[in-house]
Design a protein around this nucleic acid. Structure first.
Length: 424
RNA sequence: GGAGAGAUGUCCGAGAGGUUGAAGGAGCCGCUCUCGAAAAGCGGUAGGUGUUUACGCGCCUCGUGGGUUCAAAUCCCACUCUCUCCGCCA
């Protein structure tokens, strides 16, 4: 969410941001009009309230002296009605403004390229090379089914499509990956581990920007105000909602493992096979709360922290900078890491690292103070996958497959798995 | 699920319709004293919003949302959360 005052003072910045994203900038003028209306009413209603406050005080004094106050009270009754009517009008206006404000995406950072969609994203660099095979490599869903470590059919029976049962070595490898990733981030990169709830309330979903605009992407728990988390970003970022953080604690880094739940509305027919696009998947997420002036340096470090997992697993990947058309609603700048997936003969997103600047902090009211007595300011928030576990598992199965259909276990996972090869 | 208690500023804690945005204490900041420190003394110390070049002034906020009243932290209703006891339970 943006600061109404900032929009008032510098509307062109926001118009330009919308235009760069390919969206309609006239919403800014709509807001400016409503704001003007709103401020006019404030003046009017506050004058009346001021009068009521001082007269009410006098009433108290007069009554103490035993004087007659009936005519004043009559007058104040009428004034009260006027105030009530104006307050209602004011509420309506403010709700309309909020509704519009909540629907406006973040302003893209000047450094990111203009573009319509993902085709205009920019490759920043490549690490490693697409894996070469002396034989015809298989897709992970075929490998996993043949090894009896992935079971798509029974998952379809017990739940539905886009769910998978991981069995034996696959289940253990998922667990190993979660531990490995969290260990690297806590021990080497300085993140503090949290294990949050998998359900969050509407206020939290609004704080990070999933709501109100993207309700159809999430699962709502019926008869409650709760949503299944689409990413650990939501609970972890909202840990500090409505708090003023001590500047000595900044920057604050958290790493969290959760299952993630996504409705995948609008993805019907895409990535229907395998682990790539599931309604439920595991993810280790990195979340940062930082000083505004540091957030872009912190973004680079965040991407490097996520990339290091891929390097340690020796999985080839590339780093992509998202263009204005693909940067996402809440982000000002975003890098994706894409891992080489032989079955796609292409790179597939495995991590998404964003700087939200103050966009989420303003929605969630997360602030800090530069010094004792200073005005609170909004922090900048960032997050990134470090990494998506299901896709990592798929990438390992495919990139580490041998001709006989067995899978070599990446060296860094062997201490966690106790074996060096998965075979029949 | 049943019974009860509670939610006040950075923290503890008073207040129970009328000059209370809120006593008192702690913390923090500044000053005095001191060679320095401690102690002591004095002063300051919420957020949001509107207006103003500025000093300032106004409005809102005592868990959240409604209501009663000329006037609500204080009365009424609903909800949320926390704690205690009982029941159930991984």
């Amino acid at each position: 969410m943006h600061d109404l005052r900032e929009i008032r003072e510098n509307p062109d910045k926001f118009r330009t941001g919308l235009i760069r994203r390919g969206e309609d900038p006239t919403v800014i003028d709509l807001i400016l009009n409503l704001d003007e209306q709103r401020r006019g009413t404030i003046l009017e209603v506050e004058n009346k309230k001021s009068r009521r406050n001082s007269v009410s005080q006098q009433v108290g004094e007069l009554k103490k002296k035993g004087e007659d106050t009936t005519s004043i009270i009559e007058e104040m009754k009428a004034l009260g009605e006027e105030i009530k009517a104006l307050d209602e009008k004011q509420n309506e206006t403010e709700n309309k403004i909020d509704e519009l404000l909540l629907g406006i995406p973040n302003v893209p950072h000047p450094s990111i390229p203009d573009g319509k969609d993902d085709k205009e994203n920019v490759t920043v660099n490549l690490w490693g090379e697409p894996t070469k095979f002396a034989f015809d490599p298989k897709a992970h869903w075929d490998l996993g089914t043949a090894l009896d470590i992935l079971d798509f059919e029974r998952a379809g029976k017990i739940t539905g499509s886009r769910f998978t049962i991981l069995k034996t070595h696959a289940a253990k490898m998922a667990r190993a990956l979660i531990s490995f990733m969290i260990d690297v981030h806590t021990e080497k990169h300085g993140y503090s581990e949290v294990y949050p709830p998998y359900m969050v309330n509407t206020a939290s979903m609004t704080g990070t920007g999933q709501l109100p605009k993207f309700a159809e992407d999430a699962f709502k728990v019926s008869n409650t105000d709760y949503w299944l988390v689409p990413t650990a970003e939501v609970p972890v970022t909202n840990m500090y909602r409505d708090e003023v953080l001590d500047i000595a604690e900044l920057p604050k880094y958290h790493v969290a493992y959760t299952a993630c739940f996504r409705a995948e509305a609008g993805s019907a027919g895409r990535d229907t096979r395998g682990l790539i696009r599931q309604h439920q998947f595991d993810k280790v997420e990195l979340v940062k709360f930082v000083l505004p002036e540091d957030s872009y340096a912190e973004l680079d470090k965040l991407v490097a922290d996520a990339a290091e997992i891929l390097q340690l697993l020796k999985l080839p990947y590339r780093k992509i900078m998202m263009c204005t058309g693909d940067v996402g609603f809440s982000a000002a700048k975003k890098f994706d890491l894409e891992v080489w997936m032989p079955s796609y003969n292409n790179y597939v997103e495995i991590s998404s690292c964003s700087n939200f600047e103050a966009f989420q902090a303003r929605r969630a009211n997360i602030r800090f103070r530069r010094s004792q007595g200073a005005k609170p300011e909004f922090v900048h928030t960032l997050n990134g996958s470090g990494l998506a576990v299901g896709r990592t598992l798929a990438a390992i199965l495919e990139n580490y497959q041998a001709e006989d259909g067995s899978i070599i276990v990446p060296e860094v996972l062997r201490p966690y798995m106790g074996i060096d090869k998965i075979s029949k």
